[in-house]
Design a protein around this nucleic acid. Structure first.
Lengths: 140, 140
DNA sequence: AAAAAGTTGAGAATCTTTCTCATAATCGTA
DNA sequence: TACGATTATGAGAAAGATTCTCAACTTTTT
């Protein structure tokens, strides 16, 4: 029930916005590109324009409903903001994304920022590599 | 004297490549977009095509001579690889970039990766905010 | 229900980056 | 030092991602 969130953000409760939120909520991957969302909506028979998706995602980002992440590869990915900050680990083989949170790292960042006279607003930490279990050793 | 580096990477020593390296070495900002390099070269009377700049930067990246960074905003920025890994702090007001290195964070990343069965290849840590000294409080 | 305000879809436009291909430069060798 | 094989360059076209434009349409307010 996010119609509240939309209203709070000064956004009208429209069909495209609800559907986009739904997709983000249901996606098992949790991290989707605008195109991913576009295709998933099409599959469900919702013909929502790509331009609308980008527009809405940008509005959602401004409202704090979603986060936009810049992984390698140019295309931005979006995730629902579930209130808890976390960083990301991206498997270069499968594209799998795992979230993690580490208070030691968070704390160090604050200290480093302070030491540099830097007002820390946000940060992006992404680990790149491969999950060992995702490795297809010898199989077909 | 990087002609050695170019040869070692299996790249011919050409005028565009030398000039691009020069620009990267001399740039006080240390972090340039392909366009930045293109414009700086033009200012020096070097008419090198943008396509060449992108091509060369990609080759340099593969050879480990430069790093490609993805700050917010879509455009990639490049820096000369001076052999010492570091992360970045970006001022949203001035665009100023400051490098830092923190062994505690590096170590934590390795531990986190290990705990997740993740073979860590690389990482990107960027702090966003503003340098307090860059703040134009009241001035003209 | 009508008016006011905000939203959508489609395609055009923009921006960044890569590709194509004919021409030109580099490098090892004769 | 010139030759030939190889590789690189420049310009413009092309591709990919995202934003813009604007007329038609919903939502919300009155």
């Amino acid at each position: 029930m996010e119609t509240q969130d939309l209203k709070k953000a000064g956004l009208k409760v429209t069909h495209p916005r609800m559907k986009i939120l739904e997709i983000l909520e249901r996606a098992p991957e949790h991290h989707l590109t605008a195109e991913d969302i576009y295709r998933k909506l099409l599959e469900e028979g919702e013909q929502i324009g790509l331009a609308t998706i980008y527009r809405v995602l940008t509005q959602f980002e401004a409202a704090g409903l979603v986060n936009r992440l810049h992984f390698e590869g140019g295309q931005a990915v979006f995730e629902l903001d579930r209130g808890t900050h976390h960083d990301h680990m991206v498997c270069s083989r499968t594209g799998r994304v795992v979230e993690f949170y580490d208070e030691v790292i968070e704390q160090r960042q604050r200290e480093i920022a302070k030491a540099h006279g830097f007002r820390l607003r946000d940060h992006s930490l992404i680990l790149y590599g491969e999950f060992i279990e995702d490795e297809d050793t010898s199989s077909s």
